Simulated assay, not measured.
Amino acid sequence: MRFAEDSGLWTTGPGPDAVQLSAVLEVSGAVLSWSVDGPESDVHIAFTDPVRADWLWRVVGESAHSAIVSALGGVPDGQVEVEGVAVRPAALDSLRRLALGHWMRRWWPASVRDGIPELGAAVLDGELALLTAAAGDYFVDDTFDSDVAELLRPHAELLEGLARLGDPRVAELARACAELAADIGVEAGPAAVAVQSRRDDYALVAGEVTRRGAAAIAAGVASVSWAAVPPGVFDAAENTVSWRVESADDVANAVVLVELSGRASAAGIAVRVRSGAVDGAGTLDASGAATVALVGEDQAPITESVAWGRDWRDTAVTIGADVGESPQVRQRVRTFARARLARPGPDAFLAELLAAESDY
Rank of each mutant, 00 (worst) to 15 (best):
L165Q: 07
A91E: 11
N239D: 12
L56N: 01
P346A: 15
R338M: 10
R211F: 11
L159R: 08
G232P: 01
A214M: 13
T283N: 11
A181R: 13
R97L: 11
Q331E: 15
H44P: 00
R212Q: 06
A188Q: 05
E172A: 14
E62C: 04
P344V: 02
G280Q: 11
E5N: 02
A67P: 01
P327L: 13
R2D: 12
E81Q: 07
R58P: 00
D42S: 12
T318L: 10
A219C: 11
A181K: 08
G15C: 11
A90K: 13
W10C: 05
V278M: 05
A277Y: 07
A264E: 07
A99P: 00
A86I: 07
A281L: 09
S197D: 10
L173K: 07
G268M: 12
I45A: 11
A290G: 04
L284Y: 06
L131G: 06
S287T: 11
P109N: 09
G185V: 08
L151H: 03
G296T: 07
G161H: 08
L354Y: 00
P109M: 11
T318M: 11
A236S: 15
G84E: 05
E208D: 08
D285P: 05
S70M: 12
R169H: 05
T335G: 09
A342D: 15
F349S: 02
F234Q: 10
E304W: 03
W103D: 02
L92P: 00
A30G: 04
P14K: 14
R340N: 10
A176C: 09
A99D: 03
R105V: 10
V241A: 07
V85H: 06
V295I: 09
D114M: 14
N239I: 02
P76L: 13
N239T: 02
A342G: 01
W34T: 01
D322C: 06
Y138G: 00
D54G: 07
D167A: 08
Y138P: 01
I68A: 03
S146A: 13
A86M: 08
S275K: 01
R313P: 00
R97Q: 13
A254D: 12
V295W: 04
S261W: 06
A337E: 03
L124G: 03
R199H: 13
L350S: 05
A134I: 04
R330S: 08
E259C: 06
D114V: 12
R334P: 03
P301M: 15
G166S: 05
S225T: 04
A156N: 06
R212Y: 09
V170G: 01
S261I: 04
E83C: 10
H65G: 01
V19L: 15
A53Q: 02
D93W: 10
D114C: 08
L341M: 02
L350N: 10
A90T: 09
G61P: 02
G296S: 11
W107A: 06
S63L: 10
V75A: 14
E297L: 15
D250G: 04
S63M: 07
A135T: 00
A248T: 12
D250H: 04
Q299M: 09
A266D: 05
